[in-house]
Simulated scan of single mutants.
Amino acid sequence: MSTLRAAILAVLCGLLMIGVPAWLPLSGPQAGTAGAAAAVGAVVPARSAVSAPGAVLHGVATIAPASLADDTAGVVYILGGRELGRAAGAPWALTLDTRSVFGSVSGDFRLKLAVIDRLGGVTYRYPSYRVDNAGPVIDTTGIPARVAAGRTELSVRVGDLSRTARIEWWVGGVPSGTGERITADLHGNTQVTVKAWDRVGNTTAVTSLVITKRS
């Protein structure tokens, strides 16, 4: 990096903290989690896949603007008025731990990018990303608390931002089926566990106690 470019970035970093509007998630219930410390860096690991705006981010991810002008000298990534990191060369990418930056959440989020040209001019971009660090949501309404002894139909509804990859049922500690609906032979008090995975590897497990009625 030239001395002039370094000076521009240093000055810009100080100026960016003034008058920056509060960063908010576009959707999802997890506002306020962006203040967590972030493990970030401006160097892209070898063979690291770079995610363009609009991509689904999970775990450690590398992000970059879709395209920048040839006279770009640097990019500063900003979150909630603070600097996440800088990129000083093409592809102007930043690697970050999305769990540290956004938390264990799922939702659509927007960053602010300050793009500096070689003459010190600054333009701004506001790319959006879909972050998925939370497991599927399992609705267990279809698992009654009390049932008659014998064959019983059990069901759940599972939803996830990245779509569900697999659902497993465990009845009394024994694998008993897959999908959103099974029929199980229940007697006595039985623990019913439903495990679900999404397409990026997040998982959720919910256990219910089902009591059989006395005849």
Score class of each variant (00 low, 15 high):
Met1Asn: 12
Leu4Pro: 00
Leu9Gln: 03
Ala10His: 01
Leu12Gly: 00
Leu15Asn: 08
Met17Arg: 10
Pro21Gly: 10
Trp23Met: 07
Leu26His: 07
Ser27Met: 13
Ser27Asp: 15
Thr33Asn: 15
Gly41Ala: 05
Gly41Arg: 03
Ala42Cys: 14
Arg47Ser: 15
Gly54Asp: 15
Leu57Cys: 00
Gly59Gln: 13
Ala66Ile: 12
Asp70Gly: 14
Ala73Gln: 00
Ala73Asn: 00
Ala73Val: 00
Val75Asp: 06
Gly80His: 13
Gly81Arg: 12
Glu83Cys: 06
Arg86Asp: 04
Arg86Glu: 09
Ala87Val: 01
Ala87His: 02
Ala88Cys: 05
Thr95Cys: 04
Thr95Glu: 00
Leu96Trp: 03
Asp97Cys: 06
Arg99Gly: 04
Phe109His: 06
Val115Phe: 02
Asp117Leu: 03
Asp117His: 02
Gly121Phe: 03
Arg125His: 09
Gly135Val: 02
Pro136Ile: 11
Val137Ser: 13
Ile138His: 06
Asp139Thr: 11
Thr141Trp: 01
Gly142Ile: 03
Ile143Tyr: 00
Ala145Met: 10
Val147Phe: 08
Glu153Leu: 08
Gly159Met: 13
Gly159Tyr: 06
Asp160Lys: 02
Ser162Pro: 14
Thr164Ser: 10
Ala165His: 10
Trp169Arg: 01
Trp169Asp: 00
Pro175Gly: 09
Pro175Glu: 08
Arg181Gly: 05
Ile182Pro: 12
Thr183Gly: 07
Ala184His: 04
His187Phe: 15
Gly188Val: 05
Gly188Arg: 09
Gly188Tyr: 07
Thr190His: 09
Gln191Met: 12
Arg199Tyr: 06
Val200Trp: 14
Val200Asn: 15
Thr204Glu: 13
Val206Cys: 08
Arg214Thr: 07
Ser215Arg: 12
Ser215Phe: 07
